[in-house]
Amino acid sequence: METINYQNFRIEAENICVDYNGKVALYDANLRLKPGQICGLVGMNGAGKTTFFNALTGFVNISKGKIRINGESVRSAQKDQTIAYVPQNEGIDSQFPISVWDVVMMGRYGSMNIFRCPRESDVQAVKDAIERVDLTDHLSTPIGNLSGGQRKRTFLARAIAQRASILLLDEPFSGVDIRTEKLISELFIQFKNEGKTILLSTHDMIHVREFCDLVLLINKTVVAYGETSEVFTPENITTTFGGISPDFLFGPES
């Protein structure tokens, strides 16, 4: 197990900007996360949540600013298998002819040889990961035959098999059953204890209060960032969602 050094940041994003063909999707965004921290990323559709993830994984290039992952570049983070991305269910082709086992094995591709031949250790990592998300009965099930929750767990298992120290999760709780939701929240606690850093986007305000140490409210840029108890206020949420009150959006606050 790796040693947790709380002096160092896992993720450091400084004034990053992303634009697509001149259209600004995100500007002057900052984020710093340490090992063992869980941060919620909250914003409207089109507020730049997915863009933020894409910038951190290197899927899009930033036009300004700096990103450091474990003190190194995004490129070397990719090579070191540091970041795992768990897509939202809508983001993948559920009719793709591929089994649970094969999806989870894809988590190992980055550390295999060019022909992607699984070694003993890869097979073991995949087995363990599938066991942790409780899908051992579905090893060869095509992902098209899974429920939304099972599919979500499959991609979580891929992230586990990858042994990444940073997990980016796009809407991990949307469209999942109670059982999956419980399993994911248990996994979050384990990940935290293992010193992994988690950044998750969500629409669900209750989940933010429940899991997230920190919250990052964005609307093209950072609206507010800090400890959930301090930052996650009705005023900030209203600003994030363009003036619409959280009561209207999510029902009366508890």
Partner: peptide
């Protein structure tokens, strides 16, 4: 299947 994952793991 998932080009974003491919990119994330350095492919």
């Amino acid at each position: 299947f998932d080009p974003r994952h491919a990119k994330t793991v350095g492919i």
